Amino acid sequence: MTRYAWRWSIECTFAEAREHLGAGQAQSRTRRAVQRTVPFALSCYTVTVVW
């Protein structure tokens, strides 16, 4: 139960980033682009929330 509660805030963050920034909808073709797209979107989301 503790692990579920700890993970819940992370899952909410991912869901909000996908909803507001479209983090999961990027159309990348190269492996490096795929590896950079989601972390960049999450970084943008973090800056937006902190701002």
Results as ranks from 00 to 15, higher is better:
Ala26Asn: 00
Thr48Trp: 15
Arg29Cys: 01
Gly24Pro: 05
Ala41Arg: 11
Gly22Val: 01
Phe14Ala: 03
Cys44Glu: 04
Trp51Lys: 06
Gln27Gly: 01
Leu42Phe: 03
Ala15Arg: 02
Thr37Trp: 07
Gln27Trp: 06
Ala33Ile: 00
Ala33Gly: 03
Arg3Ala: 11
Gln25Glu: 08
Val47Arg: 10
Val34Asp: 14
Val47Trp: 09
Gly24Asn: 11
Trp8Val: 08
Glu16Gly: 12
Thr37Leu: 09
Val38Pro: 10
Arg7Ala: 07
Val49Trp: 11
Val47Ser: 07
Val34Arg: 14
Val34Leu: 13
Val34Gln: 15
Arg7Val: 01
Gly24Tyr: 09
Phe40Ile: 03
Ser9Cys: 11
Glu11Asn: 04
Arg31Asn: 02
Arg29Leu: 00
Ala41Ser: 13
Cys12Trp: 15
Thr46Ser: 04
Val49Ala: 14
Thr2Phe: 14
Trp8Asn: 10
Val49Leu: 10
Ser43His: 12
Val38Gly: 13
Val38Tyr: 15
Met1His: 13
Glu16Pro: 15
Trp8Met: 12
Gln27Leu: 01
Glu19Val: 06
His20Met: 15
Gly24Trp: 12
Ala15Asn: 00
Val38Glu: 13
Pro39Gln: 00
Glu16Arg: 15
Arg7Phe: 04
Arg31Ala: 09
Arg3Met: 13
Thr48Ile: 14
